[in-house]
Nucleic acid binder design. Sequence first.
DNA 1: CTCTATGCTTAGATTGTCTAAGTAACTCTA
DNA 2: TAGAGTTACTTAGACAATCTAAGCATAGAG
Lengths: 108, 108
Amino acid sequence: MTKLNILPGTLDLIVLKVLSIEPLHGYAVSQRVQAASNGRLLLEEGSLYPALYRMERKGWIESEWQKTDNGRRARVYRLSDEGGRQLAQEEANWLGVSAVMGSILDLK
Amino acid sequence: MTKLNILPGTLDLIVLKVLSIEPLHGYAVSQRVQAASNGRLLLEEGSLYPALYRMERKGWIESEWQKTDNGRRARVYRLSDEGGRQLAQEEANWLGVSAVMGSILDLK
DNA sequence: CTCTATGCTTAGATTGTCTAAGTAACTCTA
DNA sequence: TAGAGTTACTTAGACAATCTAAGCATAGAG
């Protein structure tokens, strides 16, 4: 079980997908990703937060400040309709890319 | 069948894999990739050639000028032993990454 | 003799992620 | 009650990777 870096170009897809399950704040997003990857994939904060800001500017996600269970403030993000369409598109693109990679790695 | 861009971070793996089948010159590499992807994946020349130079500097591939069938000169690249090890490593990394992506995209 | 395909080269822009540092508040433990 | 660890966010700058775009040169087809 080696440590893995996120593949450049897949960060938005990952975040959109996680947020499509339920609204979460940034820190929780990074924990979800770690959990879903059995701790193998680490989403750096310096990557995650700027990505959230960028995607909010693009209208893919929306946010508001809330209090968490433990009395801390956190900015909670949720997927917008446009974000849902973007997610579908990026998901399809990923499936295409990984299929192509599969056929290349299958060469003999 | 949409057009696909290469995922940043997978270029070396793609080229090493193609060269592991048989030695090829740059132009042929790009054609192999297109063929293996049913024309969906285009390897830009401005990406491919610098990648070849870079990998040769690292010792992963070796090259020599040759004449092709049609009387043109071409620099033919072949995988080195070190390149073979690098390929194995990148291939394993890809499998890990795509498995992780799969489990994230499977979230419900 | 012009057009298309083959084949290579390189400068610079652009994009994306990471490194690294910082702020701040809460919880647990000694 | 002081300190450590966790939660949570912010941002500047570095760095790596790919693409854009332009160019050179030759061969074969029409």
